[in-house]
Amino acid sequence: MPDIPGASRVEISRDEVAHLADLARIDLSDAELDALAPQLSVILESIASISEVAADDIPPTSHALPLTNVFREDVVVPCLTAEQALSGAPAKEQQRFAVPRILGDEQ
């Protein structure tokens, strides 16, 4: 296998993985956290070289092709019916998606 140049040590701690899992709303078990931390460290090590590759004056590419100004006319397109919209809902009531109690900030 070709080696990835410039590999350096990157450690990612179990606590850090737990925090990331929290941000990503995944309830990882202790065993999963134990397994994931070293795996992620290895992956990150193999890609860490990237931080030294590009000079400051290199512009980032977010889109492969340089398109701009792709707009839609402000004209109504037929919607889904409520039945279609709710067809996959794990629970529904009063033609709405029923979701467990929401913690926190009212909009």
Binding site: I50, S51, V53, A54, I58, P59, P60, T61, S62
Partner: peptide, 8 residues
């Protein structure tokens, strides 16, 4: 950085 590498 990855987006810059993309440019390269």
């Amino acid at each position: 950085q990855a987006q810059k590498v993309r440019t390269l």
